[in-house]
């Protein structure tokens, strides 16, 4: 699993490749902490090459979401693979923020 994170103005762009599971979810947690500490007000998540996410990974995103919206931030999943899109929809994550497919 690999995470690329970049910042531009007040937008953080994060791209996750591979499978996000309980063994590597702490890497996501660390990256999300960087976003929280930054000036960013929008996190663009590219999950197109993310092949699946475990509930630990989802949990990290949701914990971040709570903190991020409390400081006026927003999340958008700009792209997602079929399996991740289905999973986020099934877990009703798309009620919290925009989740785009492919």
């Amino acid at each position: 699993m690999k995470i690329d994170l970049s910042f531009s103005d007040k937008v953080a762009s994060m791209k996750i490749d591979g499978i996000l599971n309980s063994e590597n979810a702490h890497i996501l947690q660390e990256k999300l902490s960087e976003v929280l500490k930054s000036e960013s007000i929008l996190l663009e998540l590219d999950l197109f090459d993310c092949r699946n996410i475990s509930s630990t990974g989802i949990g990290k995103i949701l914990l971040f979401y709570k903190d991020f919206i409390s400081k006026g931030g927003e999340i958008e999943v700009t792209r997602s693979s079929n399996s991740v899109y289905e999973l986020l929809s099934m877990l009703k994550i798309n009620q919290l923020f925009t989740v785009n497919l492919g």
């Binding site: 877990l91 009703k92 009620q95």
Partner: peptide, 19 residues
């Protein structure tokens, strides 16, 4: 029975297994 996501829910793992 839940229609809306509960951010504090800790049943996501079961939900994923179910799915």
């Amino acid at each position: 029975s839940e229609q809306e996501i509960n951010l504090d829910a800790h049943g996501r793992g079961i939900s994923m297994l179910y799915h």
